[in-house]
């Protein structure tokens, strides 16, 4: 079975690439980018199973990027990451169609569980 592909989008380069490496060690195929523009480019070239997306980013922020993803890739699940003290932005994101959200610092096992749930219970169990 092909590994599930995950796109991580976070302007904090260290966080994005380390997270990708940790997900790879857990059997996923993860790619990291640091801007919304790079994310849209990646999505146009390759098929991803899940997007993990930071809410606060310079330029096009996470919520705007999510709106574009929703428009172009209707069924692609998006999990939001937020470093903000309040969950307000993430809750706005949930109303706008995010599958779920996670507060930073991230608990990797919680993220993995949310990734699995985001692709549906049957597919998720097989991972």
């Amino acid at each position: 079975m092909e590994p599930l592909t995950i796109l991580i989008v976070d302007d904090e380069e260290d966080l994005a690439f380390t997270l990708a490496e940790r997900l790879t060690l857990r059997g996923f195929r993860a790619e990291a980018v640091t801007s919304a523009i790079d994310a849209l480019q990646c999505l146009s070239k390759e098929k991803f199973g899940v997007v993990v997306l930071d809410v606060k980013m310079p330029g096009i922020d996470g919520l705007h990027l999510m709106a574009e993803i929703r428009q172009k890739y209707h069924t692609l699940p998006v999990i939001l990451l937020t470093g903000h003290g309040s969950a307000t932005d993430a809750e706005r994101g949930m109303r706008a169609g995010a599958f779920d959200y996670l507060m930073k610092p991230i608990d990797i096992e919680t993220l993995v569980e949310k990734i699995k749930r985001s692709i549906g219970p049957e597919k998720g169990e097989r991972l």
Binding site: E12, L15, E21, R22, L25, K104, I106
Partner: peptide, 25 residues
């Protein structure tokens, strides 16, 4: 204050990821 707490949360998140990766390896 809010800006610095956001910055520190990022720093701690990154340290957390590095520590997690060390444990994974």
């Amino acid at each position: 204050g809010a800006h610095v707490s956001h910055e520190m949360r990022n720093v701690l998140s990154i340290i957390g990821e590095y520590a997690g990766l060390l444990a994974d390896l």
